[in-house]
Amino acid sequence: MSRMQVDRTITRAFELFGKRWTGPIVSVLTAGPAYFADLHGAIPGISERMLSNRLAELGARELTVREVDEGPPVRVFYRLTEAGTALEPTLRALSQWAETYLLEGDQ
């Protein structure tokens, strides 16, 4: 038998998307730019601190951009970059897979 080994690109992808909340954040942003408070409200159970941390990480990976709306009042919003937007078909396919193969309430 040949020696099997995981693809390094898959490992890198899951290092990012295997973290809790990353997928839901990107998924919400596929609908368009969102203010921090709107993102927080769209993802039940996420703390503001965790949302802030994940958005910073996604920004560092160049998947999101943080922008300031000078207002008044001053508000911060986030949008996907080209690289982040390119994830939309993958997320849609993953959602369809989950709808078919994962029972509601599965952990």
Rank of each mutant, 00 (worst) to 15 (best):
T85D: 06
R20K: 14
Y101S: 03
G105K: 01
A56R: 13
L58N: 14
F77M: 14
H40T: 15
F14V: 03
L103C: 12
H40W: 10
T9V: 03
I43C: 00
T30S: 07
E104M: 04
G41K: 08
L94R: 05
R12L: 07
E67V: 13
V26W: 13
A56G: 04
S95H: 15
M1R: 09
Y35V: 03
E70W: 14
V65H: 09
E82W: 12
E70L: 14
G23H: 08
L16D: 06
E57N: 15
L94W: 11
M50H: 03
T30F: 06
L29R: 04
T100G: 07
M4E: 14
S47L: 11
V28L: 04
R54H: 04
P72S: 01
L39Y: 01
P33C: 05
Q96N: 12
L16P: 05
T22Y: 06
A83K: 06
L102E: 07
I43H: 00
T30N: 03
T30M: 05
G18I: 08
E57M: 14
G18K: 15
E62F: 12
E104S: 06
L63Y: 03
F77V: 09
T9D: 08
Q96V: 15
A93R: 13
T30R: 07
I46N: 00
G18N: 10
I10L: 14
T9C: 01
E57T: 05
G18M: 08
L55R: 13
W21C: 00
G105T: 00
R66F: 08
Q107C: 05
S2L: 13
T11I: 14
L63N: 04
T100Q: 14
I10P: 10
I43V: 05
M50T: 12
P44R: 13
A31M: 12
V26Q: 12
